[in-house]
């Protein structure tokens, strides 16, 4: 696993060192929503790191779990302590690639459909995911949006027995990032 991560970063850094434009944000937004019979759960995180290499299509997200904000403090506490165990697994990551990068021109203003595929790591468990999204290229930034569903069980996130069947087993994750050119 460590070797895979090292190889990925080596590829990414070599891409970064080339002349291709990189776009980044440190204030990307990710929210999740689940609608179970007992209650709706919604949380937002607006301190997400994201980077895209416009030439290769490599894409990286880094998300601190303790930055998710819930309306109710108790829910936030349960999320961190009982579900994602954020003291043990503080960081979630996505490392992947825009698979249709040839169809997207990040130098030309417009809206582009994208397909992204890569490894999503949450709660220390990594799964391969594939999702669709949209990039809107404007004169000084790129907005990227996507939403997809994950199963909590796929990430070894256990629902306490007392609320099994009352809390949704799947959550909808929405991503919204405004990326700016990386200045060196």
């Amino acid at each position: 696993m460590k070797k895979t991560v090292l190889i990925f970063f080596a590829i990414f850094f070599s891409a970064v060192s080339s002349q291709a434009q990189k776009y980044i944000t440190k204030s990307g937004k990710i929210s999740f929503f689940s609608d179970g019979p007992l209650e709706k759960i919604e949380a937002k995180n607006n301190k997400v790191n994201a980077a895209i290499d416009a030439k290769s299509g490599l894409i990286v997200f880094k998300v601190l779990m303790k930055s998710f904000v819930f309306e109710k403090a108790l829910m936030q506490e349960h999320f961190n302590e009982n579900y994602v165990e954020s003291d043990k697994y503080p960081l979630s990551t996505f490392k992947g690639k825009i698979t249709n990068i040839k169809d997207i021109d990040f130098t030309k203003e417009g809206a582009y459909d994208a397909t992204v595929e890569g490894d999503l790591t949450i709660h220390g468990k990594t799964n391969r995911i594939k999702t669709n999204g949209k990039f809107i290229v404007s004169s000084n930034s790129i907005n990227g949006k996507s939403s997809f569903t994950i199963k909590l069980a796929d990430y070894n996130i256990e629902i306490p027995k007392i609320v099994t069947g009352k809390i949704a087993e799947e959550i909808l994750i929405s991503v919204d990032v405004d990326l700016k050119p990386l200045k060196r």
Partner: peptide, 14 residues
């Protein structure tokens, strides 16, 4: 501030 951790590039205080 409240330390939400280190994301590999920055330490985040909220």
């Amino acid at each position: 501030g409240f330390c939400s951790g280190y994301n590999g590039t920055d330490v985040i205080l909220e």
